[in-house]
Design a binder for these strands. Structure first.
Length: 676
DNA sequence: GTGCCTTGTCATAGC
DNA sequence: GCGCTATGACAAGGC
């Protein structure tokens, strides 16, 4: 929270809240925006938002029925922040530190900014107060180490209003909601207006404020106690029931509101702490959005540069959302598109392909956009969470999933496929295979010996009947492991158009489908209630238990075992061939290396021979020079053809007739032969 | 029609 | 003995 305030102080009139969802590797960023109060707010409205003594900011991403979307933040007094500090990274760490207890095997990192209403501007509610009570306070926000005890969770149990009670009245004088400076310059008039409208003395206001804070603190503590007491059984029950519902796949109406309500079951995240005294700012204040222009808010800065939720979903225009809010979802998409694309096309973010948006003129539009943006989270992403949670359960039973999939209305939407793909993608190599199988085929013959988790996910993927032809193409032939995952390799027109591979892939596709359909037809003919894929991938224990659980004829059992044997052997054959090919390639490389080494040795040998020749020539010249200077006893020159120089071990040089040298060499040779 | 390539399948050995 | 894997051999289909 402190970081949020820091961010706020550096971000000016726009606070960029990020709700991060890490879905098995796919990160979806949802950006919320805190908007500064419009300068045209009336004094009492501003008091509701925080009073003239401090900045008050409001966020209304949810409807009033949600009752939590109003947020105000204390202004951090314009503290200069260290630009080198990665606030976003610290934010992320703090967000992750929150944890989410109810979605197994799926991390949902959510950061909730609780309301700090005007009257309890001392931060008696919610995380802000918690952050303040953690020792950092409003001013200390930028100094506190992120997550070092100053986090939302760590600080909530402290008398959260203590510091705020001290600090809030410290500077009771009107502090213009400068929103980091940008808004302040443009809010000079409102500041005067605020000050002018409040005829009470600052002391009176302080006392009133402090008393109000205390009251609200007490009230808040009571609320927190209620929340802390109730959730022990109620919230937990709710969470469990939700989990159960989601895991069972019977309720897909999990919403982000549910998420926040679940979070609110934890006192520190209690949404009840959010003041419900005021109507939503943007809903109640008619000029709330229009006033954005007064702040000159650069909305382009508010657009996430990361892949956000809607980008991820809207990137697949053919995606159809299966659940009830089809109309609403499409409407939400449309509104989101309006938000992002019905804007000034010139405001395109540099380095991104995201069109920036101008402040929407219509309040309703803004509200709808914010709400639907989150509702889309509700409607789609959290379903993915549930599914991923389901399939990543340790106790995951393929049969259960199979039964789920057999339900006509269950788990067959296209966006499941998207997430499955993402997850599979994140797993890195997907295993060697050139065995692409169309997801239109429920039953498969060959499968890869890959890890169970991925098989589950890909099982989901293959089950989708949306005909999704995502980026699987890019995985083809990229992997070199022997953990095959053939069914992930969905050939697309792109892959088929790959030069040099198209024929192979096409040919193989036909062959594969033909062969697969053979087993598939066999299985269907015998009414085997399992897919070929399941039969092959299933562990032995599960396989045997499956056979025992179902009443199967001997013929069915025999076929199932044959399918399993053939499927595994097919994968083994693929691996074997791949391995053999790799061995051949390695041997070829080795041959190349050896040939290169041979050439190098040849060059070295030639160089040595050349050196020896040179040395021989030098020795010959030296001998010739020596003999030219030598004279016999009669003063005649020594004939080098008759005599030779012999170097002894002691360094002496003798002139020896060549006959002796030759005979001596022969004797030595004979001795050497004798020794041998 | 033939040869080559790829893939599936079977049989078998080994762990 | 069973299950799995590896591998050689063969067959089938496509090009």
């Amino acid at each position: 929270m402190k970081l949020l305030k820091q961010w706020w102080s550096t971000g000016g009139g726009l606070l960029h809240l990020t709700v991060l969802l890490s879905l098995a590797g796919l990160r979806v960023d949802l950006d919320l925006y805190l908007l500064p109060p419009p300068p045209t707010l009336l004094q009492d409205e501003l008091l509701l938002l925080g009073g003239p003594t401090r900045s008050a900011y409001a966020l209304s991403p949810f409807p009033a029925s949600g009752g939590w979307g109003r947020t105000s933040l204390l202004h951090p007094k314009g503290r200069e922040l260290d630009p080198a500090a990665s606030l976003e990274g610290q934010l992320l760490r703090e967000v992750r530190a929150l944890g989410v207890p109810f979605i197994p095997h799926t991390r949902v990192d959510a950061w909730l900014v609780h309301s700090v209403a005007a009257g309890d501007a001392a931060g008696t509610h919610g995380l802000l107060g918690a952050a303040a009570s953690s020792g950092a306070g409003v001013d200390g926000g930028s100094q506190a180490a992120p997550g070092g005890g100053g986090g939302p969770r760590a600080g909530r149990s402290s008398p959260l209003a203590a510091d705020e009670e001290e600090k809030a009245p410290v500077e009771p004088t009107a502090q213009v909601p400068d929103a980091g400076g940008r808004a302040s310059q443009e809010n000079q008039v409102p500041r005067e207006r605020y000050e002018g409208m409040d005829h009470r003395s600052e002391e009176e206001k302080n006392e009133e404020r402090v008393s109000g804070q205390k009251e609200k603190l007490q009230q808040n503590n009571e609320d927190e106690n209620k929340v802390a007491d109730k959730p022990e059984w109620e919230a937990e029950k709710t969470a469990e029931s939700r989990n159960e519902i989601h895991l069972n796949g019977t309720d897909t109406s999990f919403s982000l509101e549910d998420l926040f309500q679940l979070l609110s079951s934890q006192p520190e995240y209690s949404l009840e702490n959010i003041s419900e005294d005021f109507p939503p700012l943007l809903g109640s204040t008619s000029d709330g959005i229009n006033s954005l222009a007064h702040y000159n808010v650069n909305f382009t800065q508010a657009i996430s540069h990361d892949v956000n939720l809607h980008e991820a979903m809207l990137l697949y225009p053919n995606t159809t959302f299966r659940r009830e809010p089809v109309a609403r979802t499409s409407q939400a998409q449309e509104q989101f598109l309006q938000l992002n694309f019905h804007s000034n096309p010139e405001q395109t973010l540099p380095g991104t392909n995201i069109t920036g948006f101008v402040p929407p003129v219509d309040n309703q539009m803004w509200n709808l956009t914010s709400q639907d943006l989150l509702y889309d989270l509700d409607a789609n992403i959290l379903d993915e969470i549930n599914l991923l949670s389901l399939v990543t359960e340790e106790n995951f039973d393929p049969m259960e999933v199979s039964q789920l999939f057999e339900e006509p209305d269950s788990l067959n939407s296209s966006h499941h496929c998207n997430f499955s793909l993402s997850v599979c993608d994140e797993e890195g190599a997907i295993g060697y295979s050139s065995d692409p199988v169309s997801p239109h085929y429920d039953l498969e013959g060959a499968v890869g010996g890959y890890y169970p988790e991925s098989s589950k996910l890909c099982h989901m993927h293959q089950r989708n009947e949306s005909g999704f032809h995502g980026d699987l193409t890019f995985h083809i032939f990229h992997d070199h492991t022997y953990h095959t995952k053939p069914d992930e390799l969905e050939p697309t027109s792109e892959s088929l158009s790959w030069p040099g591979k198209s024929q192979k892939v096409s040919r193989y596709l036909n062959d594969t489908h033909r062969n697969l359909s053979r087993d598939e037809q066999r299985a269907k003919a015998l009414h085997i209630p399992f897919s070929v894929d399941e039969i092959v991938r299933m562990p032995v224990d599960s396989f045997n238990s499956m056979l025992s659980r179902y009443y199967l004829t001997d013929l069915q059992v025999s076929l199932i075992r044959d399918i399993r044997r053939r499927g595994k052997n097919k994968v083994a054959a693929q691996n074997c061939r791949k391995r053999k090919l790799d061995m051949i390639l390695n041997l070829e490389d080795e041959v190349c290396n050896l040939q290169a080494k041979k050439e190098t040795l040849k060059r070295e040998q030639a160089q040595c021979n050349k050196s020896i020749t040179i040395m021989k020539q030098k020795l010959h010249d030296l001998c010739h020079d020596v003999f030219s200077r030598l004279k016999d006893s009669e003063g005649r020159p020594v004939d080098p053809n008759l005599y030779a120089l012999q170097c002894n071990h002691d360094g002496t040089v003798l002139i020896v007739p060549k006959e002796l040298v030759t005979s001596g060499h022969k004797k030595e040779g004979q001795k050497g032969k004798r020794k041998k």
